[in-house]
Design a protein around this nucleic acid. Structure first.
Length: 213
DNA sequence: AATGGAGGCAACCGCACAGCG
DNA sequence: ACGCTGTGCGGTTGCCTCCAT
């Protein structure tokens, strides 16, 4: 069969419970990854991408579902301020939450609020220059922190982040699940400050960061 | 009870990148 | 250097539910 025909026959749309079960059992038996093989061998008429997404966003163990807590919401806002739309990085700091979930939450709940706030405060001819300056500063911090977070992601010696925020980590996580930063990394305290003081004026943050560096 | 709009969210799409032969 | 494959990411779409009228 032509690849085009195969693709056209693949099922799209919402997953049925029985499909979930098949995928779950297959991944549990054969392990995660190699989604092309999973799609072919599992018996599912789904694309590799679709299987991967379903597993990652829904079936994977330790997925935390339901309402975002106040602390989680807070953390998302702060991290978004620092990192921008780097959903996977932001989600990596929220145990059990997926990038898709964080992205959806931002787009439906927080983005609106942010827009509302912006309208409330801007534009103003007197603050226009200041706003541009602030945006530039935020971008600088975001770039710096993004690079550091990416680098830190490669490091295996990680630690929990209870000291960073009051996010609820009481859910059952495997002992080897450590989504956070390196204990001894030099950037950690700087990033902490960026997150913790993210709600403050950007020039304040940049000053503190400069001192810390 | 019917209906239309808005909001929420799961899933898809297109692109980028890394690894490999 | 190039093409292929697998994977990840962010943006977007479209379906479902809820609620006001």
């Amino acid at each position: 069969m032509e690849a085009k025909e195969v693709k056209a026959k693949l099922k799209k749309g919402f997953w049925k419970p029985e499909e979930d079960l098949i995928l779950k059992k297959y991944v549990e038996t054969h392990g995660e990854g190699n989604w092309t093989v999973v799609a072919k061998k599992s018996g599912l008429v789904r694309s590799a991408k679709s299987c991967r997404l379903r597993w990652k966003n829904y079936l994977r163990p330790n997925i935390k579902r339901g309402m975002m807590s106040e602390d989680e919401r807070d953390l998302i806002i702060r991290l978004h301020k620092l990192l921008g739309n780097r959903w996977s990085l932001i989600a990596g700091r929220l145990p059990g939450r997926t990038d898709n979930e964080v992205k959806n939450y931002w787009n439906t709940h927080l983005n609106k609020r942010a827009t509302r706030d912006q309208i409330k405060h801007l534009p103003d001819s007197n603050t226009e220059g200041k706003r541009e300056e602030t945006l530039e500063t935020t971008t600088t911090i975001a770039l710096m922190s993004t690079r550091e977070v990416e680098r830190l992601d490669a490091v295996t010696d990680t630690c929990w982040v209870e000291n960073l925020t009051n996010v609820d980590y009481s859910m059952n996580m495997p002992p080897d699940y450590s989504p956070f930063f390196n204990t001894y990394d030099t950037f950690m305290p700087i990033f902490d400050n960026l997150v913790l003081f993210g709600s403050r004026a950007d020039d304040e943050i940049i000053q503190e960061t400069t001192i810390l560096i």
